[in-house]
């Protein structure tokens, strides 16, 4: 499972659309499943499943019909398609909703149906553009569980997300990108270790603390009224800060991808 991270406008969706053979590749070359996107898009698309950022279920059809009509675009024979639709409805727990029109589904159900639809052709490659955006925790966890089981079945999954905990949990490798360029590449743990270290100490910003930190030659960053300290040895440093600088409000926690993300792409708002 591979993750693309980056702020809004970084080029994630554009990259996804190029992989899907929808947007033209303006420079260089792009191979998907060993095939060139410019010349073999039908073959590529027949082996790929897509969960787009925006739900684009067919509002003119029921849940069941959505899957069956979609299967026709892949030339799946009808009896085989019917079997797969039943399987997929079980897989995403929508069997009870099969005759419901899609507009009356909840957000989580729609997302699950989009996932089921992306699996109708048994893809080797699954593209997910922010698969859990706007979902409640239950629905997110269900989607994650399904993605893990697909991964186990050997499906390659490419994912973009703003939920960094999601990427950290699911992805084996990731890139962080901004302005169409890749900033880092690696495993979640590797990237965190490389850019932040394993732990972070958060403390309230005051001159005394900064004095202490300068004395210790520590690596830190001021964020509003907070200070993020990136220590080599968290235990030792926090002990020092507590004892020597008589600070009371500090907390040490494991570093996350979110820290890497903000460090690399800055804290200014993106549109």
């Amino acid at each position: 499972m591979f993750g693309f991270l980056g702020p809004n406008g970084a080029g994630k969706t554009t990259t996804m659309r190029m992989i899907q053979c929808v947007s033209p590749v303006s420079g260089g070359s792009l191979d998907v499943l060993g095939m060139d996107v410019a010349s073999r898009q039908r073959e590529i698309k027949s082996q790929m499943g897509v969960v787009p950022q925006e739900n684009n279920l067919d509002g003119d059809f029921t849940v069941y019909e959505n899957l069956l009509v979609y299967s026709r675009y892949f030339d799946i024979p009808k009896d085989e398609a019917e079997r797969r639709v039943e399987e997929l409805l079980d897989f995403v727990h929508l069997q009870e909703k099969k005759d419901v029109m899609t507009e009356s589904l909840s957000g989580g159900m729609k997302r699950r149906l989009v996932l089921a639809r992306a699996l109708i052709n048994r893809p080797r490659l699954l593209i997910l553009d922010e698969p859990t955006v706007g979902l409640d925790p239950q629905a997110r966890h269900l989607i994650w569980e399904k993605l893990r089981s697909l991964k186990k079945q050997g499906v390659t999954i490419v994912l973009t997300s703003h939920y960094l905990d999601e990427v950290e949990k699911l992805c084996d490798r990731l890139v962080v990108m901004d302005n169409g360029k890749i900033l880092v590449e690696g495993s979640p743990a590797g990237v965190i270790e490389e850019f932040i270290g394993s732990n972070i100490i958060e403390a309230e910003n005051n001159p005394q603390l900064l004095e202490c930190l300068r004395e210790r030659d520590a690596n830190y960053e001021i964020i509003g009224d907070m200070v993020h300290i990136y220590p080599d040895n968290a235990m030792e440093l926090s002990e020092y800060l507590l004892m020597e600088c008589s600070l009371t409000k500090i907390s040490a926690r494991p570093a996350t991808l979110e820290d890497v993300f903000l460090k690399l792409t800055g804290r200014s708002l993106r549109e």
Partner: peptide
Amino acid sequence: YQKTFDAIIATPLT
């Protein structure tokens, strides 16, 4: 509004 075309061009159709 329905994004039906977007959904279809993710399949072997162009």
